[in-house]
Simulated assay, not measured.
Amino acid sequence: MRFMVIVRATADSEAGVMPSEELLTQMGQYNEELVKAGVMVGGGGLQPSAKGARVRFSGNRRDVIDGPFAETKELIAGYWLFQTGSLQEAVEWVKRCPNPFEEGESEIEIRQVFESEDFGTEFTPELREQEERLREQIAARQ
């Protein structure tokens, strides 16, 4: 099972406050553990929302909204993509994570990623083949 592990933003991360050398070292060690265990598929930190944009869809209309975005609690500061056997295993790995914002409050959300088989009969054999072909192309680029 794949899980998106989402690090929620804080006022400091949105203000561009960078982590300390100590936290970067701890996170590096944690990431090494994840990779050695075969858990980490990918991940990274995100720039503040002031450097981003959103595209809002309404029917055929597309509206671009430039950052920053007001609701910090809805923003993401970073992420990992985990491959584990269960949600509980992903939770256990996250519990080992250093606090992403050192001494302050922080929250990490864990969400299971849909797999092809989760979509049922609407995901036709042709769509499954396309999905597999795209995954192979992505893997070849890495």
Rank of each mutant, 00 (worst) to 15 (best):
L75N: 05
K73C: 07
G67N: 02
V64F: 04
T10F: 03
A50Y: 02
D63W: 00
V17H: 05
P19Q: 09
V5I: 14
I6L: 14
M4Y: 10
G16H: 06
L24H: 03
F3T: 06
L46I: 01
E33F: 05
R8P: 02
T72E: 01
G43M: 06
G44R: 11
E33A: 14
G67I: 02
V41A: 12
M18I: 00
F3H: 15
T72G: 00
E21C: 01
Q26M: 13
V5W: 04
S49T: 13
P68N: 09
A37D: 10
D12C: 00
A70R: 11
E71Y: 00
G45Y: 08
L23A: 04
E32N: 14
N60L: 10
E32D: 15
I76Y: 05
E14H: 04
R56Q: 13
T72V: 15
E74K: 08
V64S: 03
V5Q: 05
G28W: 03
I76G: 08
Q47D: 10
P68F: 08
T72Y: 01
R61M: 08
V55M: 12
V35A: 15
T25H: 09
A15M: 12
R56L: 14
E14Q: 15
L34D: 10
M40D: 09
G42A: 15
Q26V: 00
V64Y: 03
A11T: 15
M18Y: 02
K51T: 12
S20V: 03
T25F: 08
L34C: 13
V41Y: 04
V41R: 14
E14A: 07
N31C: 06
A50R: 12
A37I: 09
G44E: 10
G16A: 11
E21M: 07
P48R: 14
D63I: 02
D12I: 00
R62Q: 12
G38C: 00
R62H: 11
I65A: 05
S13E: 00
R56M: 12
D63E: 09
A53M: 13
T10E: 01
N60G: 14
G42F: 05
V35G: 09
D12T: 01
F3R: 03
R2C: 01
V7D: 00
D66S: 07
G52R: 08
V41P: 06
Y30R: 11
M18Q: 11
S13Q: 01
D63Q: 02
T10Q: 02
V5L: 06
I76D: 05
L75K: 10
F57A: 09
E33G: 13
D66H: 03
R62F: 09
G59N: 03
A50I: 05
T10D: 03
A70N: 10
G28T: 13
P48T: 13
G28L: 07
R62K: 13
M40E: 12
E14C: 01
Y30F: 15
L24N: 05
T72F: 00
V41W: 03
D63H: 01
A15N: 12
A37C: 08
G43R: 04
P48D: 13
M4L: 15
V5S: 08
I65Y: 00
S20K: 02
E22N: 06
G44C: 11
V5T: 07
T25W: 08
L46D: 00
A53G: 10
M40G: 11
M40A: 14
E33T: 14
N60P: 07
